[in-house]
Amino acid sequence: MQFLRVVFAVAQKDLRSELRARELLPALAQFVVLALVIANFAFDLDLVSGPRLSPGILWLVLVFAGLVAFGRAFAAEKESGSLEAMLLTPAGPAAIFAGKALASAALLVACEAVLLPAMAVFLGSPISATVVVTVLVATAGMASLGSLFAALAAQTRARDLLLPVLALPIWVPFVVVGGKAVQVAMSGQSLAALPLSSQPLIVMADFDILFLVVASLAARFVLDD
């Protein structure tokens, strides 16, 4: 209970400061829309290729928006020296880490709330409930690992360089499985047609649990000096 209270307090603090400063979210929303503009001209999209290339564009934009969202969460703390201050409180490092991961996941979800409708409008992507659920399930796992490596990279000299190098390969499972799920959903098929052993949502939920456990075990070593 105490653990959860700390988690929510930290997450609330992050979201409140974002709400007051309005720094990250407008920039991320703009980034997402601009990425779609680039995709539009880079792939020369039309009515046929738009929906066909949508799954790939979705994951590319999501992954890079995630890097920015998770990176900023810890970089900002590091710049103001407030991470050390939080670690001096009796709150455990794992709870602080979970709170920050939760807040950055919420930011990425807000980002997705811009991305998915924008894709439907600009690229004509068929966005269904399955696509939304897939993206949300992937966000949970990406947030736990992304925040872990963001916290780690923030303590080095080259955090902006190191975070993509560390996080992108680790996210590959989510892009592989989520990419397949979005492809199936966008081509109008139902995920239920896939065999039970390779149900993307179930497998990704398993990954979420695994990485949540790994990240919360490792958080102590990343945050504690």
């Binding site: 872990l148 780690l152 993307p200 990343v222």
Partner: peptide, 20 residues
């Protein structure tokens, strides 16, 4: 931390690609 978490990720990548 990077060495250990990275190693955990490898079988996950392997199976996710193998299944899809």
């Amino acid at each position: 931390v990077v060495g250990i978490v990275g190693f955990v990720d490898v079988p996950v990548v392997h199976f996710s690609v193998q299944w899809w």
